[in-house]
Design a protein around this nucleic acid. Structure first.
Lengths: 338, 338
DNA sequence: CTGTTAGCGCCTTCAT
DNA sequence: ATGAAGGCGCTAACAG
C-alpha cells in the first residue's frame, strides 16, 4: 500500500505561477544564483515554502550533466574498517553537497564489474574504488577509464591517472615482524590469502623484505596461503598446531583472521603468547577487549576516507592535486605477543 | 585530472542510427519488451555491444517516473548490526534490479530530516527507515507521508500505513532478566539511554514488565539512564562500583554498551560474573571472543534486512502484504553471567 | 535584474 | 512488428 497521501510533486512551473515570475527566476533562487531582486527572491522563497517544493534531481542531472553523486565500491561492508571509511567519506561529501552511493561487491569480480557499470549509468561525478580483487590491471583500467574521475584506495594500477590512496602495508608488516623478533620469536609464519589484490601481495612482499632485512632465512613452509574463509583459517591453524609445528608466531592478513587464529589456539589450550604469538592488521574495534587482546597495526581509517574523498573532490573540480597519498601503520602492542 | 579518455556517452539515437531502426525499437530491446522481430533484435543487440552503450538512468527516471532506487535511512553505519542489515537488503534489492541508497544519520534528527528529503528528491520508489531518534511521531508521519512507500524498522508510528518490521525487545529483555534471576542475581539494574526511540522505550518497558512478572520490586535506583556516549557509560558504571553499590547485574542497552561496562568492571578488578553480571543486546560479532564472553540476545539481522526489503518491494508493487513482522530475540548465554 | 527558447535522453501514446 | 511526436522537470544560452 502506498504511503504517499500528500500533494503531488510540484515543479518549477508551479512555483513560478504562484510567485508570478518566470521559471528561470525560480531556478535562480533555488540555486542561489545572483540577479534576482530581493523582493522577488522573497516572494519566490515564500512560494517554495508554501508548496513545500523539492527539486527533481533526475531532471536536474539530465539537464546539467552533473549528478552531484559519487560512488564508492567496497569489497565487504561487513568488515569493520569499511563503515569507518564510509563515515569519513560521507562527512566530506555531504559537506560539499554530494551524495554517496555505496556499492558492495562482496569480493566478487562480477559484482565489481556490475557495480562500476551501475555507477557509470548513474553518471556519478567520480568513483572511489577500494581494494579490487580478482580483476586484471587491464580490465580495471578499462572499467575505470569510463568513469569521469576516480580515486583508487589500496589498489595500484600502473599508468593510470586516477588518484591513489594507500596504506604502506610493507612497513606495517615490517613493524610486526620486528616486534616479534625482538620478543624472541624465530619461527614467524605469514598467514595470508591468495594474491588476488594489493593487500595480499604487499603483505607477502613486506614479510619477505622484513625477514631479509633482519637476516632471517625465508622458509617457504612459513608462508601459509589459506583459502579465503575463516573456517579454512581455523582448520589450517589447528592442523599446524596439532602436527607439532615449530611455528611460534602467526602474522595474520588482518584482525578478523587473527581473531580466528586466536580462537583456534585457545580452543587447543595453546598458551598465547608464550608458545604462539599472534598479530593482526587494521586495528578494528573491540580487539582490545579480547580474551587475548590483539597486537596489531593501527591505520586511521576515518582519515583514509576523508583524504580519499577530498582527493576525489579535487579531481572532480579539476584542481591540480596530490595524486598519491600514503598512510603509514602504527604498531599497537597488546597481549597476543610477548 | 579527469580519468575518462573513452568515447562519449552514446544515446539511444546513436544505437538506433547504427542499427538502422528507430529509437523506440532500441528502447524495446533495452527493456526486453515484446514486438521486436528476432532479426531486428539481433541487429540492435549488436549495435549496443559495439558502442558499449549504457542507458542514462537520469533520463530514464525522468521519463518513467520510477527510479528503481530505494533508500535506507540508518542511524549509525558503524554499529555492526547495520552492515549486516544492509547486506540483507542489498541481496534482495539487487536481485530485483533495484539500487540501494544508504543514508547515515548518525542519530542526529536534522540529518534524519535531511536524509528523507534527499531520498524524496531522488524520487526513490520507497524508503526503509531504521530506528528513528529524537523525532516526534507527528513529524515522522509528515516526513514519511511524502515518500512513495515506506517500511519502518524498529520504529512505531501509530496510524501510519507504512510497513513495520520490529524486534520484540520486551521479550528480549525478559529473557535476560529471567536468566539473571535464575542465576541468583537480585539487584538487577537496567542501564539504558534516554527515551529517544523505540529501542530505549521498549527496553524500559521490558525491564519493568519482567521485574513485575517475576515478583521483583521495581527500584528506581536500578534504572540508570545514561547520556548517549560510551565515556559516560564507563564513568557512571565505575561510580556505582566505587560507591559500593549493591548492583549485582547490569542489563545493558546493547552489546557496545555492555562491552564498555565490562571494561569498566575489569579495570577495577571487579570479578565477573561473580560480583557483577553483564548482559548485552544484539549479539554483534566478536563478543564471544571477549575476555569475558558476553551473554546477550541474538537477532538474525541479515534476515531482518531481507524481510524488510521484501516487504518494501511488495508495497512498491502494490501487492497486498503483511504489514507487520516481528522478530523474537534468542538468549545467548556466555560467561559474563553465572 | 528577468524571461524565452532549446534541448538533456528516455519513455509513453498513438499511428502505421 | 515498427515508428513519430510529445513531454518528463530542469538548466544553459541568450535576449531583453
Amino acid at each position: 500500500m502506498p504511503v504517499n497521501h500528500e500533494d503531488k510533486q510540484f515543479t518549477l512551473a508551479d512555483v513560478a505561477a504562484r510567485a508570478n515570475v518566470s521559471i528561470k527566476t525560480v531556478s535562480r533562487v533555488i540555486n542561489n544564483e545572483p540577479y534576482v531582486g530581493t523582493a522577488t527572491r522573497e516572494r519566490v522563497a515564500q512560494a517554495i515554502q508554501e508548496l513545500n517544493y523539492h527539486p527533481n534531481r533526475a531532471a536536474r542531472r539530465l539537464a546539467s550533466k552533473r549528478s552531484h553523486v559519487i560512488g564508492m565500491l567496497v569489497p565487504s561492508i561487513d568488515y569493520p574498517i569499511f563503515p569507518m571509511i564510509i563515515l569519513g567519506v560521507e562527512k566530506v561529501m555531504h559537506a560539499h553537497n554530494y551524495e554517496v552511493l555505496v556499492y558492495n561487491t562482496e569480493v566478487a569480480p562480477e559484482r565489481t564489474r556490475k557495480g562500476l557499470e551501475l555507477l557509470e549509468e548513474n553518471q556519478v561525478d567520480g568513483v572511489m574504488v577500494f581494494t579490487v580483487n580478482h580483476i586484471s590491471d587491464d580490465e580495471l583500467q578499462q572499467l575505470i577509464s569510463r568513469q569521469r574521475s576516480a580515486v583508487l584506495v589500496n589498489t595500484v594500477l600502473p599508468g593510470s591517472d586516477a588518484g591513489v590512496v594507500r596504506i604502506d602495508v610493507v612497513r606495517g608488516i615490517e613493524l610486526l615482524v620486528q616486534h616479534l623478533l625482538e620478543a624472541g620469536k624465530r619461527r614467524i609464519a605469514l598467514l595470508t590469502y591468495p594474491k588476488i589484490n594489493y593487500s595480499a601481495t604487499e603483505r607477502l612482499r613486506g614479510y619477505k623484505q622484513a625477514m631479509t632485512r633482519f637476516d632471517m632465512p625465508i622458509d617457504d613452509d612459513l608462508i601459509i596461503v589459506c583459502e579465503d574463509s575463516l573456517d579454512a583459517v581455523y582448520h589450517i591453524v589447528q592442523e599446524h598446531l596439532k602436527n607439532g609445528s615449530q611455528i611460534d608466531a602467526f602474522v595474520c592478513y588482518n584482525d578478523l583472521m587473527a581473531a580466528t587464529v586466536l580462537k583456534a589456539c585457545l580452543d587447543l589450550n595453546v598458551p598465547i603468547p608464550e608458545q604462539v604469538a599472534v598479530t593482526g592488521f587494521d586495528n578494528i574495534p573491540f580487539t582490545d577487549l579480547f580474551k587475548c587482546p590483539l597486537t596489531t597495526v593501527n591505520i586511521p581509517w576515518l582519515e583514509v576516507g576523508i583524504s580519499a574523498a577530498e582527493m576525489l573532490l579535487s579531481q572532480i573540480s579539476g584542481e591540480p592535486t596530490t595524486t598519491e597519498l600514503v598512510f603509514t601503520p602504527e604498531l599497537v602492542v597488546r597481549e597476543s605477543t610477548p
